[in-house]
Write a protein that binds this DNA or RNA. Structure first.
Lengths: 140, 140
DNA sequence: ATAGGTGCAAACAGTTTGCATGTAT
DNA sequence: ATACATGCAAACTGTTTGCACCTAT
């Protein structure tokens, strides 16, 4: 009888999981790499790609497709929610709640099964108290 | 006095414009290339990338970011609308109308300036009269 | 005639894969 | 001890750029 394939608990995968958990917002592969690299010296980008993939397969991570930013990743199992993409600091935040209505007329014969909503604007860090955006670290 | 830079009306750019106009839905660079190539023999992909970029600069084209499909392009100047991505044939359609409400609570200090809504499901071609999707040409 | 446009190939950037080595189990 | 995981480099894919030639003006 074949032994079950066991996923190993390695330093690098642990660091990658912690980066995602600690962020509180969806991260790009690049951001995960940078965060995990601070913990693990010599970490390779390929390991990040592979780990993210396996975490997705495990159902521990969920992909978030944000228009214009490629695929980001957040912890799986959250309630239905959408995202906010700050056009100033380029961070993506989670928003909770959603008027599950999304009143868009569908042409006859079309059936929608899910929807994706992304808001764009400036986040609280970038637009302090009514002023114009403070020149926030324009990360990359 | 410097002479104004004039954009030339070449066969290839004309074919590219016609592909976009005739489609009636947003196209990917690849789709534009395929369509235009049917008209212009020997058309190079670089020309498509360059032409799309110049049409964007001219304000003749607008980019459409559809999560999971990269950037598509549609004619500019349309009314506010959103998109439908068919998970069966992978085509993207325009939907008209939008409940400009989009009732998502924003955290304090966040300011939204625009939003993007994408619906996913099966289009009329792929789900005929209440049945299960007819195995539509699963284009790539 | 001239300057912008085109095709081709090389250059790039992001992601994946093969392989020898490392390391949880 | 064994088999999965890692790091590195090569391979790929999608997009951009340099350059000699072409062509709308």
């Amino acid at each position: 009888m074949a032994r079950a394939i066991v996923e190993r608990n390695t330093r690098q995968k642990r660091a990658i999981r912690e980066a995602l958990q600690g962020a509180g917002r969806p991260l790009s592969t690049e951001e995960v790499f940078e965060a995990a690299q601070r913990e693990i010296d010599g970490l390779g980008i390929a390991t990040v790609y592979r780990s993210i993939r396996s975490l997705l397969d495990d159902g521990w991570l969920a992909p978030v497709e944000v228009p214009g930013k490629g695929t980001l990743y957040e912890l799986a199992g959250k309630d239905h929610h959408h995202h906010f993409s700050c056009t100033s600091c380029h961070r993506v935040y989670e928003l909770d709640g959603c008027d599950s209505g999304v009143a868009v007329r569908l042409p006859k014969g079309f059936q929608a099964s899910r929807h994706e909503v992304t808001l764009y604007g400036t986040c609280a860090n970038c637009v302090p108290a009514g002023g114009s955006p403070k020149r926030a670290a324009a990360r990359k």
